[in-house]
Design a protein around this nucleic acid. Sequence first.
DNA 1: CTGTTAGCGCTTTCAA
DNA 2: TTGAAAGCGCTAACAG
Lengths: 383, 383
Amino acid sequence: MVGMRDVAREAGVSTSTVSLVVNGNGYVSAAMAERVSQAMKRLNYVPNELARNFSRNETDLVGVIIPTIRHPFFATLTASLQSALYEQGMRTVLCSTADVDQDVSQYVDMLRRRAMDGIIMGAHAVYPADYWSSIERPIVAFDRFLGGSIPSVGSDHSQGGHLAASLFAHTGAHHVVEIGGPRTLYQTASGPRSVSLGNIQIAGQTTFPPIRYHLAFEQRLQQTGIHYDYIEIENVAQMEQFRNAAHLAFERYPDLDAIVAPDLAAAFCVQEAFRRGRAIPGDLQIIAYDGSYVSDLAGLKLTSILQDFDGIANALARQLLQAIPGRVYRAPDATQRQAGQEGTGLNGARPGSVPGSELIPMSVKLGESTRWEGSIEDLLSSE
Amino acid sequence: MVGMRDVAREAGVSTSTVSLVVNGNGYVSAAMAERVSQAMKRLNYVPNELARNFSRNETDLVGVIIPTIRHPFFATLTASLQSALYEQGMRTVLCSTADVDQDVSQYVDMLRRRAMDGIIMGAHAVYPADYWSSIERPIVAFDRFLGGSIPSVGSDHSQGGHLAASLFAHTGAHHVVEIGGPRTLYQTASGPRSVSLGNIQIAGQTTFPPIRYHLAFEQRLQQTGIHYDYIEIENVAQMEQFRNAAHLAFERYPDLDAIVAPDLAAAFCVQEAFRRGRAIPGDLQIIAYDGSYVSDLAGLKLTSILQDFDGIANALARQLLQAIPGRVYRAPDATQRQAGQEGTGLNGARPGSVPGSELIPMSVKLGESTRWEGSIEDLLSSE
DNA sequence: CTGTTAGCGCTTTCAA
DNA sequence: TTGAAAGCGCTAACAG
């Protein structure tokens, strides 16, 4: 293997000069640089990144922990993340826990051993807050609060919940069924505390922010007196559960006339509706929550509450880069920033109460599965 | 940072002994091992993987190059790949070219610089064969032939094409429309050679094996005298194109009564059909090719030609590991091997003509979008 | 601007 | 079974 010394010898310079040329940082005269470049070319020199990593004590690798890359939501988010990270000179190590049937700890250990420069944590895990804080390496959480000083980024789900409920409230829904994640995640940041799904309104943070969508949703429905029920999906990584939940919704609540569900579940609901001869949106309205491409495939264009995947990804990348010592976050082009926006943008971001946390605004894309004829602005102004 | 020397000092042994204990390979007395372990615990020692990588000249990282992780097909494949690689002690670096708007060469350079131990190449690239062979580092291709000695793994698409055509032939289709990838990839392994889509039958390899599906499909249809047309998708990474292709199929060929299409396109075809009041499968039959979960979401259960994602992933992982010097491939449990099998398994794998190449058998899952009432065995035995 | 030099933390012969 | 020691290839002071 031809190394720097060889190049240095060939060019008649020292290794440090070669290093400067390769990395293009320090001051090297043009002549010298040229001479070295020629030597590199002659010898077919390829820098050894392992040695470089070892020396710098960095890998430029970021672990992206998610439940499964199969799921369109996480696939879409991961695509945005990979792009945002790439712009910052970082590469993505895929860490989908359900796909490899592994605990999160495997990947955290890689972080500890410095195999990665940081981690974006977007999967469920059972560790107490001090597990995370004791790691003392760059970690940023997606849609969850891990512990004291670990930043968190996620969509503004209270806004999303409010939007969904408003749509139903203004289109004369009577019985809404919501399909969503496990209730065991209904906990406050101050410790595990189970929360009734009844009439209460939570103060403070939940450890699992998407739950705020449910709460806002519920609250808004109650204003209008719409009856609603909840169907729980235990494991987001198992697609079967989305189908089962959809089936259950129709079996258990024959009089339902409105559904909000993660778009995978929403797609199955469409199928159930077709099969049972329920007309959409005349007889039954459906809102897909998340807004991955699946909401476009489901037999008709679903109205959906969109997450701003690129916005989330950029925020995550920024938070992570800021947590890596010696790194600076370079903002992407303005043109790129807007790429994720589709449909109607709403409120600006509001800071969460956890340090470094960010809420990314959501938006609505009206499709064929709801009855609202006007614009979203119309809807909101009539609130 | 506490390193091996510290542990060695604490335990009163040499660093090499500590190394042996950490890696659990050499011969160390139980007492000594225990003493060292205690010391590690006391000092909270965490091995530095960068130093290890540097020393071993390995990273245990594999780059998975695909067009986009957004696409359900590649997401599913990547999930299987990640699992297969994890079992071999390798981690996955996500390299989706369209998501980061980068050329394949960026990732190949990483391979050259030893930032990864190998690459699985599943995206389109324009380089000549000698580009790939000159790299002289572990590379395995998915569904394409790159160059002389680079192994290739992919589904047996001629089988898939034959299956699809047989289904149509036996259910009285008259006008079949096929939606598929770019025709410019219709090249033989012996060099770029464009191939008419007319009546000819190709001898030899195409550089892009999925094309064989088209050829087999066409050939089988001709036996029955079924009229057919082809609609081309230029860029697989752009989902819009799938929708457009679906729309185009109905506009251009109003009398079509059968469609084969990648499942994303198939899903949009269902939507078009609904919108136009075409009854499925009575009036129009649809076969989804690939068989990712999308074929279950599309408003009804689509009949699909399935790729064996786990089978493909295991073969890719095996080929790659065998190409990495000093690595041995350990076969996964029998239970895991079958995980990917769904529907009806068919012919066994047939070796391709390129060294190290493998063809993974495909299968059929009958859904609601075709009219065949019997089993697949019935269908094939009536051939 | 360029060269000298001292590591980075671990693996791996080779001796003892 | 354990220890001593020589790197692995590059970076980054520091000196010139």
